[in-house]
Amino acid sequence: MGSTVDLTGKTALVTGAARGFGATTATALAGAGASVLLTDVLDDLGRETAESVGAVAAERGARAVFQHLDVTDDAGWEAATSAAVQQLGGLDVVVNNAGVEITRLVVDADPAELETMFRVNVIGTTLGTKHAFRTMRPGGAAGSGGAVVNISSVAATIAFPGIAGYSASKSAVDRLTRVAAAESGRLGYGVRVNCVYPGLVPTEMGVKLAVETSALGLFESPDAAVAAVVGLTPLGRLGEPADIADVVLFLASDASRFMTGAGVPVDGGMGM
Rank of each mutant, 00 (worst) to 15 (best):
G269Q: 04
A83H: 11
L176E: 06
T49Q: 12
A112L: 13
A80S: 11
M205A: 14
E220R: 14
D73C: 12
S35Q: 00
L13T: 05
G231L: 11
V248F: 02
G145M: 14
N150H: 10
R104V: 08
N97A: 08
L218D: 07
Q67R: 15
T8M: 01
G22L: 04
Y166F: 13
D108C: 07
A141S: 15
T15E: 09
Y197M: 09
D108K: 06
N150L: 09
G239T: 09
D174Q: 12
M205L: 15
S167H: 08
S167A: 15
A58L: 06
I123F: 10
E48N: 13
P222F: 08
G261V: 13
S3N: 02
R47S: 09
V95K: 04
A245W: 03
G239A: 07
A109W: 08
R134E: 13
A156C: 13
L232E: 04
D92C: 05
M136H: 10
L88K: 00
M270H: 12
A26N: 02
T233Y: 00
K208V: 03
L91S: 01
S35L: 01
G263T: 15
R47P: 03
A112R: 12
V247T: 10
A224Y: 11
V93G: 01
A109I: 09
I102T: 06
V264Q: 04
A80D: 07
S82T: 15
A252P: 03
A84Q: 04
V247P: 01
L235A: 04
R63V: 00
A252F: 05
L249S: 01
G128I: 07
V122W: 06
R119N: 14
L45G: 03
I123H: 11
G31Y: 03
T72W: 09
A75L: 14
M205T: 15
L238D: 08
V5H: 02
L29R: 00
V41W: 12
V106A: 14
G217M: 12
G124K: 06
A182S: 13
